[in-house]
Every structure is written in C-alpha cells, then in structure tokens.
Amino acid sequence: MAGFNTTAIHAIDPRDNEYRAIVPPVHMASTFGQPTEGGEGPFEYSRGGNPTRSKLEESLAKIEGAKHASAYATGMGASAAAMGILKSGETLLMGMPVYGGNYRFGTIELPKRGVTTRFVADMAELSDEDFDETVKMVFLETPTNPTLRVSDIERIAELAHRNGALLVVDNTFMTPYLQRPLELGADITVQSATKYLGGHGDLLAGVAATNSDELADELFKSQLINGNIMAPTEAYRLLQNVKTLGIRMDRQQQNALKVMDFLKGHDGVAEVIYAGSANEREREIQQRQAQGLGALFSFKLAPGANTKAFLDSLEVFTFAVSLGGIESLICLPATMTQGAYSEEHLKEFGVDTDLIRVAVGIEDVEDLIADLDKALSAAF
C-alpha cells in the first residue's frame, strides 16, 4: 500500500486523460451532449456531476481511505449534507463546543425540519442512557473548536451503533493525514477543505466521505437536489493543493510545537491549551487515535494583560478567522468563530471571552516566536 504523500500526489492517473497531462484539465461546461439513441452519458449537467469535481472526489476518497467522497461549495455545505440526512422527529446529539456554523445549523436549521438537537458538554460521559429511539446521529469534532478537547472516536462509534445511530466526525483540524475516523468506526467524516486541505487561503470548499453506499447516495442528493456543489475552478485548485497536505502539515506541526513551548515558558501566558492537555485520559486518546497534535491551539494571557495591545502589535500573525493555511492566524473565538453562541452556551461549553486561538502556518518559526514575544511585551 502506498504512503499518504504518494497517494495524494498520484491519486489521479494521467493515463485517464486524452493527453496524459500530469495535471487534469478544468471542465467548465455547464452541460454535456447526450447519446441520441437513449440513456445518459457519463455527465449530463454539472450540478449532477462534473469531470473535474469527479476527479477531485476520487482523489479525496483515496486519501481518506474511503469508498466515496462528495465535494461541496463550503465546509458548512459538507456538514449540512451530513446532518441533513436526519428526518423529522429524529434527534441529533452534538458534542460541544463545535464550530459556530455547525452550532447554527443545529439550533436554527434543524428545528425547521422537525429535528431536535441535544448538546453534549463532555463526550467522555456519553452513555447508553443518552440514547432513546429518536437519536439517529452523533456529530462531534475532535479535537473540539476552540477548546481542543479530545473524544474517543472508537468508543463513541461503538456506542452510537449499539443504539442505532450514525457517527459523523468533523475532522477538519486533524485531516486524514493525522487522524482517520472512518477506520475507527465513524460512518461519515466531514471537513472544511477551505482549511488544511486547501491550505492557501484562496478557496472555499468542503468534503464528506463514507464507506457506505447508502450514505453516499444521501450525500450526493445534497449536491443534486440542493445545488450544494463545488465549482470546477475550486475543484481544480483543491485537487492540486491537497497534494502538498502532508508536507505542509509536517511543517505546521513542527512550528506549532515550538511556538507552544515558547508560550508555556512565558510569564505573560496563563495557560496553553492543545489536544490532550485537558487530562491524562485525553492525552492517551489523542496519542492512540491521531498522529500528532495538529497545528492549532489556544491560550490565555496572564491577568492584567491588554489583549487589544497584544493583537495590535502582531505583524506576522494576522488577526482573522479561519485556519489551516500556510500563513499564521490568530483570533478570539468567543466573538468570532463562536459568535453565534448564546452567552449561556459560551460559558457552559468553556469558550471564555479571553481565549485566544492560534493557527500556525509554515513561516520561519523564529519569526513567529519573535512576533509573539513583541506582542506579549506590549500587552503588559
């Protein structure tokens, strides 16, 4: 079996296109000629299928180790397609905290469809008692956004399946390079491909992957019926960008570890929060189910710090939402990525107003550390 980087680079065989081009072409056509003798050609109308998008989906399925992958216009498109499988009268268990867009879908959109969302503050405490006959899906992020809490995917998959429910894992932070939820029992993985898969801050995209033919058909319906599709140009760019995922992720993780070590030793930092830092149990789970900590973490400044002065002094880090790109970003989740949360839920699920989230890029790590050091001095 080929390694991850080899698979990512060679997922699409150049012999499959007319000129054996190393890079597949972009098919911009909205419609395709059909056989006059009846039936349909391989592609009919781009909402239902496009050659460029199909090549991307083939590539994404291979790096996921999945039978099927569906590409969407955004990461929320992928999450919406997965949660959209639920029917009126059914219940979703959503592990908290989650990205604000997933929270919105669970609190605003699903109720309109007659679906109930129940929040789970600590997935470690999830048990058979949390399931009744209406619970048909568990949706979780691990590590969580932005508190980096870790859930045991294999345990929760067994629990969900025992109670007749599906498990959907948002794997945006880890990517299939570092964590493979389908191999641990998840039914569907979703990712915002805008983040690490794209990696360059130049596109919006989402992907959902599964090994189930039945679930794959449901995910396809979200493309066909809802028009929830990725455009050929984005598919083309993502098809190229994902080839460097492994090498980018290696550098980003390497940088993140060094930046965290610097912050842990700085008097101006009260706490550094990362995957597995909550307790020994979560540390063991992260080590068992993932190949590293990823390149995203959160931290809190020491008491008395001027957060605005800290942010205003940054020059290499950009104060912005998103993550996973080659450039380093920093944000305040309580008012940005989790801005949709009620004040009550921000407190309940540990998204403190002074929590700072850091997404580390591939810059020279000495420059990242110097930038943070200067900003910390300004904060005090």
Rank of each mutant, 00 (worst) to 15 (best):
I229D: 01
E18H: 13
A71M: 03
F105Q: 09
S313A: 15
V98D: 00
Y196P: 01
A309Q: 13
P25Q: 10
A379P: 00
A340S: 14
G84V: 07
A375L: 02
Q291E: 14
D16A: 06
E327L: 10
Q223F: 00
N163C: 07
N163H: 09
T91V: 05
Q253Y: 02
V98Y: 00
F262L: 07
Q286D: 14
L293S: 14
L224K: 10
G38T: 10
A124C: 11
G350Q: 14
H161I: 04
T337D: 05
L204Y: 11
T74Q: 03
E280Q: 15
Y236V: 01
R288A: 15
V135Q: 09
F310R: 08
A305C: 07
A359N: 14
D213H: 12
D250M: 11
V351E: 04
Q254L: 12
V190P: 03
K112Q: 15
I273L: 11
E57D: 04
I153T: 14
Y103K: 07
L296P: 00
P97Q: 12
K374Y: 05
K347C: 05
G199R: 03
M28W: 14
D352I: 10
T335R: 14
Q252W: 00
D371T: 05
C331H: 13
D122L: 11
T175Y: 01
S70Y: 01
L178P: 00
A295C: 14
I273E: 05
L368V: 08
R113V: 14
G33Y: 10
N171M: 02
I225P: 00
R180H: 00
I356Q: 08
D130V: 10
M76G: 11
T244N: 07
R237H: 06
E90S: 06
L184Y: 01
T52L: 06
S88M: 07
M137A: 10
G292E: 04
P111T: 05
N279S: 14
V115W: 04
E214I: 09
D352A: 15
S192P: 04
G265T: 04
V360N: 12
P181I: 03
D132K: 09
S298A: 14
M94L: 13
A290F: 00
T233M: 13
G361N: 11
Y196L: 06
A66P: 01
N228L: 07
R15T: 13
A370G: 02
V360L: 06
F173R: 11
Y341H: 08
G41I: 05
A235R: 02
G39V: 05
G304W: 09
A2F: 02
D352E: 15
I247W: 01
K243F: 01
N228V: 07
L329P: 05
R113W: 13
M96H: 11
L126N: 08
T244H: 03
G265C: 06
V135T: 15
S70M: 07
L314G: 05
